[in-house]
């Protein structure tokens, strides 16, 4: 098969959006892990709940503009995250990682099956007018929704960098992620910061869901795969390094797009997880050095 530039660019764009999408999902998880030290196995399910929220808002009798709906999804998801933190995370925050893992796996079971009971197992689509609009600058066809995802992802990452380095709250979070005990000693209320971080993680997850689900569909068990892909990205990125996790997410998106496009679609997930497992063996500390924290 001759090399076709058009197809190559198509895969590249596809990989970029996929990577941007994975990084948006990963971002909320890596923030809470980095700052609070909790690996939330129910993270993907929070995304799923946000997706259903979007579905409900889009199907309301009053028609709201998409921007308003996105804002509502962000707020509501941040609220869900706060509720989860208060009820289930807060009481076990000082316990071992084992307790964290099993509690959040329990949460994941609850959320997935609650969604199953309410919405059944049928996938629900949430098309917006944007997801069907395709533009073709320079002969490359791309849907507006994908373009928005790319732009928003870039803005969010830039925003996080600024937030972490130049705001008081961000600096505090960064300090906690680097040395929790020391921060407690100097009187920083780490529990309050934990709640705020969860809310922030929830807001980002809500944003991700509001942008991404129009391209795909929502179903009750979608969270598992998202969780494990985000976790893989976090491990590859060096456990708790926010930038590392974003790069790793981009890498996974690229691998899936190119392998799926050129080699085998059926094995694309196998390969991206295969890369993850391989990274674990070769560089257990992650691909991008071993700097600690945000």
């Amino acid at each position: 098969m001759p090399f076709q530039l058009e197809i190559f660019i198509n895969h590249l764009l596809n990989g970029l959006t996929l990577g941007a999408l994975y990084s948006l999902v990963t971002l909320g998880l890596v923030l809470t892990f980095s700052v609070i030290g909790i690996v939330n196995f129910a993270h993907g399910d929070l995304f799923m709940v946000a997706g259903y929220t979007l579905f409900l808002l889009l199907n309301m009798s009053i028609e709201l503009p998409y921007v308003v709906i996105v804002a509502l999804v962000i707020l509501l998801t941040a609220f869900y995250a706060v509720v989860i933190e208060r009820l289930a995370i807060h009481p076990i925050i000082e316990k071992s990682w084992r307790t964290h893992a099993i509690t959040t796996i329990g949460l994941s079971i609850i959320l997935q099956n609650a969604a199953l009971a309410i919405f059944s197992a049928d996938p629900r689509t949430t098309p917006t007018s944007l997801s069907n609009t395709v533009i073709s600058p320079l002969g490359i066809r791309i849907s507006v929704q994908r373009l928005i995802i790319l732009v928003v992802a870039a803005l969010v990452f830039a925003g996080i960098q600024v937030f972490v380095k130049h705001t008081k709250l961000g600096k505090t979070m960064r300090a906690i992620s680097q040395n929790r005990e020391m921060c407690q000693v100097v009187g920083i209320n780490t529990r309050k910061i934990a709640l705020i971080t969860f809310a922030l993680g929830g807001a980002i997850t809500g944003l991700a869901a509001a942008l991404i689900t129009p391209l795909f569909s929502v179903y009750n068990s979608m969270g598992s795969m998202l969780t494990i892909k985000s976790l893989a990205a976090i491990v590859m990125g060096g456990m708790g390094q926010v930038n590392g996790a974003i790069y790793a997410s981009m890498l996974m998106g690229m691998i899936e797009s190119f392998f799926g496009g050129y080699v085998s679609f059926a094995y694309k997930d196998v390969v991206s997880f295969g890369v993850f497992v391989l990274v674990l063996f070769i560089r257990p500390t992650g691909l991008f050095g071993k700097k600690v924290g945000l």
């Binding site: 099993i102 329990g106 949460l107 079971i109 609850i110 099956n113 009971a117």
Partner: peptide
């Protein structure tokens, strides 16, 4: 399953 999840948590 929800019951199981609740028990686990």
């Amino acid at each position: 399953q929800i019951l199981y999840g609740l028990i686990l948590v």
